[in-house]
Amino acid sequence: MISPELKKVILSELDLDDFDLQDTTIAPEVPGWDSLNHVNIILAVEKFFNVKFKSYEVLRLKNVGDLQTLVNSKTGK
């Protein structure tokens, strides 16, 4: 389940009004989330949740659900 906060950060970084982000959603399915923009989303998520990811942790993410799990593990949820 994607939290409203994570959804808000991602959609605002991509300038999207709304998009149905699910656990299984992968980046190419989301308009504007390309390989060049990917880093901006990661930076925005780190900034919003005030966390720091290791490169290894980011590189093994497969979908938005994995990103949510990573954020949860860093914020202690």
Partner: peptide, 9 residues
């Protein structure tokens, strides 16, 4: 690309 991109973000 991704490893260089992420580690130099």
């Amino acid at each position: 690309f991704k490893p260089v991109q992420i580690s130099s973000r």
